[in-house]
Nucleic acid binder design. Sequence first.
DNA 1: AGGTTTTAGTTGACTGATCAGCAATTGACT
DNA 2: AGTCAATTGCTGATCAGTCAACTAAAACCT
Lengths: 162, 162
Amino acid sequence: MNATPQPGDEAAARAANSRLVRDFGLLIKSATRLEQRIDGELRQECGISHTMLEVLIRLCRRPGEEISQRHLADDLTLTSGGTTRLLDRMEEAGLVHRTPSPADRRVTLVEPTPRGREVFLRAAAVHARLVEKYFVAPLTADDYRRLTAALGRIDLALRDDA
Amino acid sequence: MNATPQPGDEAAARAANSRLVRDFGLLIKSATRLEQRIDGELRQECGISHTMLEVLIRLCRRPGEEISQRHLADDLTLTSGGTTRLLDRMEEAGLVHRTPSPADRRVTLVEPTPRGREVFLRAAAVHARLVEKYFVAPLTADDYRRLTAALGRIDLALRDDA
DNA sequence: AGGTTTTAGTTGACTGATCAGCAATTGACT
DNA sequence: AGTCAATTGCTGATCAGTCAACTAAAACCT
């Protein structure tokens, strides 16, 4: 039923079973699952995606401040094209408003609409509930602190060599 | 230039600036960046995506063992349809081989081809190099241990209430 | 000032996933 | 045995992103 064992099989098995491979897989998988869970719940209860929530978070931080698409794109790790389309959908849904920058006619500034802020408030509550349940509750306070610190260092390492 | 401040603005700003929101954003962002980096490098140097590598990892663990698509889908957090198409591409690329299960005529079993194992070995080296650089190096040994343990608990919490 | 280079955002073509619906097969219950 | 439910994998339609090519505007550089 199986082919005759090849010399490479053993080496491949060793690599596939390595500790690092499993641990790294766990990081990616946990983050993916977590995001899927939150995305699904947000769509169902608030009608927005997790990505849209991330946009609203950034737009609501400093009321009155307008943020350029470029800035959003960098912060969300999206391409400029992807950001254009994301904001198209959000504008269509009445969540944000685009205005050309008076200072630089290349840039367009983005602001949440009143409705955008309102939806954000509801979404933030859902978000908080789920983050609490799956991110905070499973960890001790100490673990939580160390985890976020560790993630910060990883993120820094990734940013450093662009 | 800015609209008159609304009563909800302040509440929204508070939510948007919360500690939990930032920390959770960091988790998702770090994982996303990490995966993008690795995916890009794998495509360039080995011609496979990160998802394909994850498939090969699972197929190479126990040489001679064949794994059902269903099992793969669950393990990768993909839908069955997505898995079908992923394996279509991998079969097309000569990385895996599908055989109908003799025991249950609904299931099809998947095995790596010799070429699949060979590509996997090269990809695993690239993978190890990057994981080492961005996941291990930025952390102390102690942090690393705690981080993976914490992720394990998060993953468990997510699995528990399916 | 004037030409070159860089930057911001949009768009068309494509990719890799999802979802929902399907056929085939198997299991479970009388 | 015979029906009804559950499971496996596949498919068409769609979605949300990428990439590369483009335009318009600004910055830079002698």
